[in-house]
Amino acid sequence: MDWTALGLSLRLGGATCLVLLPIGIVLGRLLAWGRFRGRGFVEALLTLPLVLPPTVLGYYLLVAFGGSSPAGRLYEAMFGSTLVFTFEGLLAASVLVNLPFAIQPMQRAFEAVPGEVREAAACSGMAPLQVLRRIDLPLAWPGIVTGMVMTFAHTLGEFGVVLMVGGSLPGETKTIAIAIYDRVQAFDEGAAGAMSAFLLASSLAALGITYVLSGRVGRRRA
């Protein structure tokens, strides 16, 4: 078992969730209730990571993060180093890859909050932030937790993008999924087996939690 790789993966998963929680809530509400031009395009763009091969996504991120792109140069000018082959770069890639996993369950949960109930909240004198805190979040929390659990589990298992953007630097960018690949190449069946079993169990647990919570959302609506 590569404990450094596992620790890195857990750290990456946690950080990705932290970044995506506010983004998911804001974009999920916007997509659930907002009516604006280009909405379909935005939704397609946010869903893209689900269907795009991870290597394609990884390739574009690598190009974008690199010193020859404007974004890469800007980051380098601000922080003195590039995003490529760093934990920060990995985190940025992980956030982008996980956008659909975080946003979609939240969007569905916010959509399930009846519009009239939110209007009633406004007519009861609640300001928009109070409506968020007292109505939206309490009614949509199972979807929010689902989005976070899916994001975390998916981050642990992500392979292609991580390999493209992060390389495989121990302690910096070598996650558990890459460590498994490494161990198999080195004919270390024992370590690969243990880590695979861990990922299998954590994924199963994540899906279990997700289904229990989505059942709860359904009951709430009835």
Partner: peptide, 18 residues
């Protein structure tokens, strides 16, 4: 809406279910 002092009874009541 939240700064207008209205009492609004909706057709389906729109109570806060939680």
């Amino acid at each position: 809406a939240h700064r207008r002092r209205v009492g609004f009874v909706f057709q389906n009541y729109a109570l806060f279910p939680h």
